[in-house]
Amino acid sequence: MSISVADYWDTYYPSLDENAPDELLGKGFSWTQWDHHGPDEGYLRQPDNALELGCGFGAHAAYLASKGVPTIGVDVSPVQHGRACRMWDHVPGLRFELADVRDYLAGTDETYDAVYSVWAAMWFTNPAELVPLVRARLNPGGVLAFSQAPAVEGCYGAQGMHVNGFKGKQGGITRWNYTPEMWVGILRNYGFLDVDAAVLEAPDPDDVGTLLVRASIPAS
């Protein structure tokens, strides 16, 4: 039995203290599972504006906006969208939209210097549908950047996972997993240049690392 992506993020996302936004901002911008590990917001190459796909409760978008980068965060989950609006309504230059990222990208006329996803929509959406929509909304020279878990060796493409592990109520959702080399091919196929894809080792090499991908489109 499958569930919708919205239901998944409504139900299974970890709880947090909505009354501690300053503490979350103090953690900075992290692409990995660990605070202060790996690149920071500089990985986006100093954009003048940005769009986050699958922003969750909005901490990364709020951090960018607090640094003077007008940012829009899009999420399909009403629960997460509500959290984001409540927690960050005091941050100027920040807006949150409740929508499927594909619908949002297809329906907006706005363009962006950077589009990014942190363990979110780029992992849970078919890249054949999402990547061309992202490219169409990037300004010349714009950057797409995202992070997610590395693929398990030999298991690539669309894969289902049980949302509750192997206990509890049934429910499944789909993620898309590829090697760094596969991501290079996918993004180049849609007209991206300077594609950099690699797995960043965890602080403890025995732990799961982070797949980091960044690419740009031509400047003219």
Rank of each mutant, 00 (worst) to 15 (best):
S4V: 09
Y8H: 07
T11K: 00
S15E: 10
L16N: 10
L16F: 14
D17A: 04
E23K: 02
L24P: 05
L25W: 10
G28R: 01
W31I: 12
Q33R: 03
H37S: 08
P39F: 02
Y43P: 08
L44R: 11
R45P: 09
P47C: 11
D48N: 13
L53A: 04
L53W: 02
G54H: 05
G56I: 15
A61H: 11
A61Y: 14
A62Y: 10
Y63E: 13
S66E: 15
G68W: 09
G73K: 01
D75R: 02
V76R: 00
P78Y: 01
H81D: 15
G82I: 07
R83W: 15
C85W: 03
C85H: 05
M87N: 09
W88T: 13
H90L: 06
H90G: 06
V91P: 05
P92S: 13
P92G: 06
G93E: 11
L94E: 15
R95D: 13
E97L: 00
D100S: 10
R102C: 15
R102V: 15
R102E: 15
Y104D: 14
L105D: 10
D109E: 08
V115R: 00
S117K: 03
A120C: 01
M122A: 05
M122V: 12
A128S: 14
E129K: 04
P132E: 12
A136W: 03
R137A: 10
L138N: 08
P140Y: 03
G142Q: 11
G142C: 09
L144Q: 08
F146C: 01
S147C: 05
A149G: 13
C155V: 13
G157I: 10
G160N: 13
G160D: 15
M161S: 07
N164I: 11
G165L: 10
G165H: 04
K167A: 13
I173L: 11
R175Q: 09
P180D: 12
E181M: 08
M182S: 06
V184K: 02
I186P: 00
I186T: 09
L187E: 13
L187W: 10
G191Q: 11
F192P: 10
L193P: 06
V195I: 14
A197G: 10
A198L: 10
E201S: 00
E201P: 00
A202W: 11
A202T: 14
P203Y: 04
P205K: 08
P205C: 09
P205F: 04
D206A: 10
D206P: 00
D207I: 01
V208R: 01
L211T: 05
A215P: 09
S216I: 10
S216G: 14
I217Q: 06
P218H: 00
A219D: 15
A219E: 15
